[in-house]
Simulated assay, not measured.
Amino acid sequence: MSLDSKSAAPAHPAPGHQRRSALGSVLKLRELPVILALVILVTVTAALNPLFLSEQGIKDLLLNATILMILAVGQTLVIITRNIDLSVGSILGLVAFGTGSVFVAAPNLPIIAVFGIGILFGAVLGAVNGLLITVAKVPALVITLGTLYIFRGINNAWAGGTQYFAGDRPEAFGNLSVDTILGFPVITLIAVVVVAIVAVYMLGTRPGRDLYAIGSDPEAARLFGIPVTRRVLMAFVVNGALAGLAGVLYASRFNSVGATTGSGLELDVVAAAVVGGVAIFGGSGTVVGAAIGALLLTTITSALTALRVDKFWQQAIVGILILAAVVIDRIAGVRAARKLRIAEARNV
């Protein structure tokens, strides 16, 4: 064999190097701290209260996280584009009460049709937000804060003092949060499917990857030919549709829906996304991380309740987690920028 043929032979990294690279990739995952916190929390709580991980306890944990998981997935799409949607709780409330109204007006309507109506209703409300933001060029924080109150006011006017209870809905619809498949509640499996579909969309399709580019640098994204306005509008529409889906599932999960349904939920949604590793400044994060963040927040509440800790401390811990997530993300961003500047200086 000649010297040339030896130099042309492909170089294969040693197995030890491959293992170190794989381990390094795992350790760099933004979701890793959240997963570790969740594991530690569950382990400690189960040690102090063995009933916490009973069959019913696990089912309750999953059910409590389901609605927030779906909302956090939709919010992630919006935050990645450097926006935010504070109206998701009001959208959920409108759709949940609308679901109760539909069942009262048409009790024989197929359940799948009710899901379709709720998702479409939510998508329309999301489109209202998206159009106001992309066309009027007003910051999302201002627009969605306004629509939060507008949608809530519409729900108050529509519902008044009326509430729809479990007896007003078909039994099969209510059973979605009771029935299980392989031990998992049906509505939780719906949430898992949503997370999987959106995760594949974000990482495996051009429009999904465009959202990251927009969040990283909107002006650069425009220069590269990315339709920024259309992509941001799409993110708000999908976010609204998922809030609509969450509203329908809320009507199945809980015993009553009314004018106050979903109040204050938007803050928990943003918290779940941020704690799950979604950068509040846009451009990075995953829907899987947001879903895990939602599971962590609801597990914290359940764990502290099981340990009979005062509700104030539950809220304080969530606040500490949000601050920690933002600070860690900011430090990581500064370090990455510093490394990039050093690398550029060396190349020069």
Rank of each mutant, 00 (worst) to 15 (best):
T299N: 01
T286L: 04
S90Y: 12
L223E: 02
A324Q: 02
S302V: 02
N175G: 04
R209Q: 11
Y149Q: 06
L63I: 13
G282P: 10
A37K: 02
G293I: 01
G153I: 07
R209L: 13
L265Q: 13
D268T: 07
S284V: 09
F121A: 15
L131H: 05
G116E: 09
V200Q: 02
F312G: 02
D60H: 10
G240Q: 08
D60W: 14
L77A: 06
A316D: 09
L36P: 05
Q314V: 15
V309R: 00
E31L: 11
V195P: 00
V274R: 04
A332E: 14
R206W: 06
W313T: 03
G116V: 11
V186Q: 13
F254W: 11
Y212R: 02
N49L: 00
A294D: 06
V274E: 02
G122Q: 10
V192L: 12
G283A: 05
I214L: 02
I150E: 01
L109W: 03
V228D: 01
L51M: 10
I150C: 03
L29D: 07
I226Q: 05
I70D: 08
N129W: 13
S252F: 09
T134R: 05
T298N: 10
W313P: 05
A199W: 11
F165Y: 14
S177L: 05
L62I: 11
A290M: 04
T229P: 00
A166K: 14
V42S: 03
G204A: 07
L120Y: 09
V178E: 08
A47S: 14
G160H: 11
D168C: 05
S90P: 07
E344L: 14
G240E: 11
S263K: 13
G283N: 06
G74W: 07
I214N: 00
G285T: 06
V195R: 00
N49A: 12
Q75D: 09
G319R: 04
G276F: 03
R169T: 14
A22T: 12
I331M: 13
R206C: 00
T66W: 12
N129T: 13
L340G: 07
V248D: 03
V237Y: 10
L233F: 14
L109I: 15
F281G: 01
A113H: 03
I40D: 02
Y164C: 08
R19M: 15
G161Y: 10
